[in-house]
Amino acid sequence: MLALPVIDLKNKVSAQEWQLRVDLAACYRLIALHGWDDLIYTHVSVRIPGTEHVLINAFGLRFDEITASNLVKIDMAGNIVDADCPFEFNPAGFTIHSAVHEVRHDDLCALHVHCNETIAVASLKEGLLPLSQYSMFALASMSYHDYEGLAVNDDEKLRLQQDLGNSNFMLLRNHGALTMGKTIGDAFMHMYDLIRACQIQIQVMSTGMEPILLEQSLIDGIKGQADIVHTGLTGGQKAWPAMLRRVYKDDPSFAL
């Protein structure tokens, strides 16, 4: 078994970058704990404020191997910033994440997964339906992007940016899901809501019974409510420290 390179960047980067690294590594561990990972594929990225630099996972590492120090720092042109970095990154992930970071400067974090339920709902013509409270959170800020093959073509970036617009939730047709957040905790909470919404939709549809569809007026009004009590100051910001405690309890090595 090949051992991973041992890296310690804690005292070699700014305090701000280090905290982002710890939170991002925790997010990768949480994705693994929730079963949202896909071997070594999919990504979470975060822009370092005041820079054109993005942190992303090293290609080839399991999500439960991600640490604050082994995250890879890249610029918007796809160059690894640290010359002595022993890792590479996935170019397909860079296409998607660089595209959204280029146009969403107020949103630091982009989270992308390939969960079965999100792929299933993204593959339906109707997309996400207003069947549950979780779907309401997502539908209040939802967009779609058609499948164009593996995301390695720079020409796709503009279409992805246009489709995303100002939304915080996106279903990538026949592919998976993407969420945005002003913080890593916000992007994580958005994905939690979207995955739950997709899971519930698949379960409801599997009954073969006629569902109750919630009205558009409820969707229109729920975003303001959610900002206050769910993913806002009393919701997401409360949930994220609790999630950090869970990761520290499971395996504190993520913060190294």
Rank of each mutant, 00 (worst) to 15 (best):
residue 4 L to W: 12
residue 4 L to T: 06
residue 8 D to M: 06
residue 8 D to R: 04
residue 13 V to I: 14
residue 14 S to Y: 06
residue 15 A to I: 01
residue 16 Q to T: 09
residue 16 Q to W: 00
residue 18 W to K: 01
residue 19 Q to V: 01
residue 19 Q to M: 02
residue 20 L to I: 02
residue 21 R to K: 04
residue 25 A to C: 05
residue 27 C to K: 00
residue 28 Y to D: 01
residue 32 A to S: 10
residue 38 D to H: 11
residue 39 L to E: 00
residue 40 I to Q: 04
residue 45 S to I: 03
residue 47 R to K: 13
residue 48 I to T: 11
residue 51 T to Y: 13
residue 53 H to T: 13
residue 54 V to W: 03
residue 54 V to Y: 03
residue 55 L to W: 04
residue 56 I to Q: 01
residue 56 I to T: 09
residue 57 N to L: 11
residue 58 A to M: 02
residue 59 F to T: 02
residue 59 F to R: 13
residue 60 G to N: 12
residue 60 G to I: 11
residue 67 T to C: 12
residue 73 K to M: 08
residue 73 K to I: 03
residue 79 N to P: 00
residue 80 I to E: 01
residue 81 V to H: 03
residue 85 C to G: 12
residue 87 F to N: 02
residue 89 F to I: 03
residue 91 P to M: 08
residue 91 P to F: 06
residue 91 P to I: 09
residue 91 P to K: 15
residue 93 G to F: 00
residue 94 F to G: 05
residue 95 T to A: 14
residue 99 A to S: 13
residue 102 E to C: 13
residue 103 V to Q: 06
residue 105 H to F: 10
residue 107 D to Y: 07
residue 108 L to T: 06
residue 109 C to E: 02
residue 110 A to N: 08
residue 119 I to Q: 04
residue 121 V to M: 06
residue 123 S to K: 08
residue 124 L to M: 14
residue 126 E to C: 10
residue 129 L to H: 00
residue 129 L to G: 09
residue 132 S to A: 11
residue 132 S to H: 12
residue 134 Y to F: 13
residue 138 A to I: 05
residue 138 A to G: 01
residue 139 L to P: 01
residue 143 S to N: 04
residue 145 H to E: 04
residue 145 H to S: 01
residue 146 D to I: 12
residue 149 G to N: 05
residue 150 L to W: 10
residue 153 N to I: 12
residue 153 N to F: 09
residue 154 D to W: 04
residue 154 D to H: 11
residue 155 D to Q: 12
residue 156 E to R: 02
residue 157 K to P: 05
residue 158 L to P: 00
residue 158 L to R: 15
residue 160 L to V: 08
residue 162 Q to E: 13
residue 163 D to I: 10
residue 166 N to A: 09
residue 166 N to V: 11
residue 166 N to E: 12
residue 168 N to G: 14
residue 172 L to Y: 10
residue 173 R to K: 15
residue 174 N to Q: 10
residue 174 N to Y: 06
residue 177 A to H: 03
residue 178 L to R: 00
residue 183 T to D: 11
residue 183 T to Q: 06
residue 184 I to H: 07
residue 185 G to P: 06
residue 186 D to V: 13
residue 188 F to L: 07
residue 191 M to V: 09
residue 201 Q to Y: 14
residue 204 V to T: 12
residue 204 V to K: 04
residue 206 S to A: 15
residue 206 S to H: 10
residue 207 T to V: 09
residue 208 G to V: 15
residue 210 E to D: 13
residue 212 I to F: 11
residue 218 L to Y: 13
residue 220 D to A: 14
residue 221 G to R: 13
residue 221 G to K: 14
residue 222 I to R: 12
residue 222 I to V: 10
residue 222 I to D: 07
residue 223 K to G: 10
residue 224 G to V: 08
residue 225 Q to N: 15
residue 225 Q to D: 09
residue 232 G to L: 13
residue 232 G to T: 07
residue 242 A to V: 05
residue 242 A to P: 08
residue 243 M to H: 05
residue 243 M to V: 02
residue 246 R to N: 01
residue 246 R to V: 03
residue 248 Y to T: 01
residue 249 K to H: 14
residue 250 D to W: 04
residue 251 D to N: 15
residue 251 D to T: 06
residue 255 A to R: 14
